[in-house]
Design a protein around this nucleic acid. Sequence first.
DNA 1: TCAAAAGTGTTGCATCTACACCCATGG
DNA 2: CCATGGGTGTAGATGCAACACTTTTGA
Lengths: 232, 232
Amino acid sequence: MVSQKIPNLSVDCVIFGYNGKELKVLLIEQKKISEQLKTQYALPGDLVEIDEDLDEAANRVLFELTNIKDIYLEQFQAFGNPVRVKEQKDSDWLRSIREFPEERVITVAYYSLVNIEDVAPKGSAFADHTEWINVKKVPPLAFDHDQILNHALQRFRSELVTKNIGFELLPPKFTLSQLQQLHELVLDKKLDKRNFRKSIKKIDHLEPLDEKQTGVDHKPAQLYRFNPKKED
Amino acid sequence: MVSQKIPNLSVDCVIFGYNGKELKVLLIEQKKISEQLKTQYALPGDLVEIDEDLDEAANRVLFELTNIKDIYLEQFQAFGNPVRVKEQKDSDWLRSIREFPEERVITVAYYSLVNIEDVAPKGSAFADHTEWINVKKVPPLAFDHDQILNHALQRFRSELVTKNIGFELLPPKFTLSQLQQLHELVLDKKLDKRNFRKSIKKIDHLEPLDEKQTGVDHKPAQLYRFNPKKED
DNA sequence: TCAAAAGTGTTGCATCTACACCCATGG
DNA sequence: CCATGGGTGTAGATGCAACACTTTTGA
């Protein structure tokens, strides 16, 4: 069954992941229409269904691509340039997948943080496959997705410092050094170890475990987890 | 000439003004369809035209209602509940003005600050008239506009402190006490006069004039203006 | 015993808060 | 000369940045 879609309205999702070394973003490789076309990457997104909430649509797109369900997606901006999907580079592909490929499309953009281990990227109706790509090495994207990705990164950075989000990118048990590395990567600057620890020890829901790192050839670190239920 | 509109997409504008005493928001009174219906207020908004940028649409709505042109409107959130325009209270009115009144409508919300003196509210195609209403005394609004207004207020508060916006609400020449009163009103708390002055004197583009208040029965205050060109 | 990362406190500086009196004007 | 809001500084508390050494483990 094909559900009915609003021809002018889509959601796009910027899904960040972290492998311990690099901040990555989940991109789809657009299905190749003909051999002449070179492959183009894009953010996962889709038209919104006729009776679907925006948040629901974003979750659906995320689920279709990653099998991840019920995580928080932050809506950060709507992009509505009337020609944002009308560049030459995008029209062939749109003609192959859309019922009304000439329509202008407004998109509502969401971002989300996931544990990269939880995701087994897979193909979908629109995409040959999905791929985790280092945010510092993202090729030019379809539509205005470069711009959307940049906005997402900015928003992520500012929420990382103001709201101390970011635990979602780490494995369930992590060390403070891992957390610090993640912050350094996202903010693109070195942080002082002692000051970092002082500042994050203030935040709630960060719980030390009775457990240490194993299998490292140096002093094993205390493991922590992020526990939203913890009162502290 | 009637321009073609996208049936599922609108913009709504939360326009704040300040009269020296109260923070106000510009609302439209929906045209009365029949004598039975009670008047309902709503945020100014309209469907987006088929080739119109979102920002452009917001500016058009603002202009149609206030004759104000070319001011900055901040997009803050898209609202896309599929039933947000389908409550009983709103359906009669929609049937009277919309070509497709049963369609679900996603709206992109903007907020803006204007000098209340510059606005001569007037009627429009949809509204009997427009009215400045104290934000603390806003009646229940059409659609989900209460929620939109609340989000706008929150965003305005946070940008007032982080970005020191707010001058747009004052007359071109103002005293520091007027600026302080505005901040106190928006943030809903008393501020210390000396500390307030210290903090705002750090911000750029605030320029003391060679001019003082007149016509007051106390020591006349220094006048300032906000001058975005000033380097300082 | 060596290498590698974990872990831990203090000091100076900048920022924020609290607080009270004199000044200029109009009536 | 009185009432009214305008205008100003300081001291204490708090928060942030800089900085170096000891510990624990595996190899």
